[in-house]
């Protein structure tokens, strides 16, 4: 294990990217921060800039307009950066799979600009906060 992966696992700071989601996954992500689930006690913190982020929480099926912005946000993160595809849309476009304006899923877009990207998937529509926390814990355990 390289030292920077070891450091990343201790207290991952996350940046939230909505690429055309219906708000549900976003609300459940914010729900993780509030008293009932409170992930800040594990050192997981939502930050305001991708340049501070160890992980990206990407929701939504990636619309044509959001694609260049998602790529730019990923480029701005320090590497290694774990990309979490949260929700059915981010994992595989979900119910919007045949839309004319959806160019996702997230892993295709990220792999196109960085083939070595680390991508973790949390399925569900929306995934419950417990599922999101469990996904993050499992992903960090195998890194």
């Amino acid at each position: 294990m390289s030292w920077n992966i070891w450091a990343l696992k201790k207290s991952p700071w996350v940046f939230h990217v909505n690429t055309g989601a219906c708000n549900n996954c976003d609300i459940e992500i914010v729900n993780c921060l509030t008293p009932k689930f409170d992930v800040e006690r594990f050192g997981i913190k939502l930050v305001g800039s991708p340049r501070h982020a160890d992980a990206l929480l990407v929701t939504g099926a990636v619309t044509a307009q959001a694609r260049p912005r998602l790529e730019e946000v990923y480029r701005q993160t320090p590497k290694p950066c774990v990309v979490f595809a949260i929700g059915a849309c981010a994992c595989d476009r979900g119910i919007f799979h045949n839309s004319y304006h959806v160019v996702g899923p997230v892993d295709k877009i990220i792999k196109a600009i960085d083939p070595d990207a680390i991508i973790a998937y949390v399925p569900g529509c929306p995934p419950k906060p417990e599922a999101i926390i469990s996904g993050v814990v499992k992903a960090l355990a195998v890194l």
Partner: peptide, 23 residues
Amino acid sequence: ISYNHRGIEKISETLQYDQVPFL
């Protein structure tokens, strides 16, 4: 705006009446 446009009205035309509520 329109970063979030997903073409829902168009998808709806490809779904049956009973499937549209889920969309």
